[in-house]
């Protein structure tokens, strides 16, 4: 296990293991992963292989039972709660189930963190919120409630809220889940636009291989393949496609026979 911290690594997971309650099998099993400054990294793998759990561990929502997560070199497990909160303010995340405050309007969803966690005046907060709403093309929907919006609009609002406190690292949990191909493309373009403008380190968990491959080829994003709680392979689109690992090989080719389907039938 590599215990050194590279200055270029904004997030680093070292030997982390996580299991829910008394479950016999860990969801994340001695996993190592690093996310570099200003890079885009895709996390792919079958559903139920621990992608969401891993993002939540990296975002500090869950604490691993072994190992540690380092955010800009700071080990989360070693920090007191105040320092931990300060460090984690640099990290943001969008959720698969949107995580929007359903009793608040679009504008209030963005004003909440600005009002509660910054020293901005109400006018400044409003200005910041409106700027972000313009970026995600939601101007004009300020007074709508999340349940009045389409899935794509909810995803965009989720992205806007994730960015409102100007984080340096953003995790996207299945940002295109349940969306049609055109809306999916809009969401991905939005994520990449935001990444380019703000130079955030970006980790995108998805089950959609084509999405990861397409972006990876254009933007030199890396792809990490997660399976049974471990990263089986990490590399460029070509490296993933040419992988000799039987699990990765079956996944990228969508083969019906192989270790993945044997695993499911077991």
């Amino acid at each position: 296990m590599d215990t050194s911290i590279n200055e270029n690594e904004v997030v680093k997971a070292q030997g982390i293991t996580f299991r829910y309650g008394d479950a016999p099998q860990p969801v994340i099993d001695l996993l190592d992963l690093s996310l570099k400054r200003s890079e885009v990294l895709f996390l792919i793998g079958l559903s139920g292989m621990g992608k969401t759990t891993l993002l939540k561990i990296l975002a500090g929502l869950y604490s691993p039972q072994t190992g540690d997560v380092f955010i800009q070199g700071a080990p989360l497990a070693m920090l007191n709660s105040k320092d931990r909160r300060m460090i984690l303010r640099r990290v943001s995340m969008t959720f698969q189930r949107s995580g929007l405050f359903d009793s608040l309007t679009v504008l209030e969803n963005l004003l909440f963190p600005l009002k509660e966690l910054t020293l901005f005046s109400p006018e400044q907060s409003l200005k910041v919120a409106q700027k972000i709403l313009s970026q995600v093309e939601l101007r004009g929907s300020e007074s709508k409630f999340p349940f009045e919006m389409s899935g794509g609009m909810q995803k965009r609002l989720g992205i806007a809220r994730a960015l409102v406190l100007e984080p340096e690292v953003v995790f996207y949990d299945d940002p295109t889940a349940g969306l049609d191909p055109i809306t999916s493309k809009h969401i991905v373009e939005l994520i990449l636009k935001v990444h380019k403008e703000k130079e955030t380190a970006t980790l995108i968990a998805t089950s959609e291989l084509d999405l990861a491959l397409g972006v990876s080829r254009k933007n030199l994003a890396r792809i990490a393949f997660l399976h049974e709680g471990r990263i089986l392979q990490i590399g460029t689109a070509e490296e993933i496609l040419d992988s000799n690992n039987p699990v990765v090989f079956q996944f990228v080719r969508g083969l019906l026979k192989g270790p993945l389907t044997r695993l499911e039938s077991e």
């Binding site: 975002a59 929502l61 909160r85 303010r89 959720f95 189930r97 995580g99 929007l100 359903d102 966690l117």
Partner: peptide, 18 residues
């Protein structure tokens, strides 16, 4: 279950307080 409490935690705030 809709991750609203996690969203508050992620913002660095304590859901018990808010």
């Amino acid at each position: 279950v809709t991750e609203q409490l996690n969203a508050i935690r992620l913002l660095g705030a304590n859901p018990i307080e808010y």
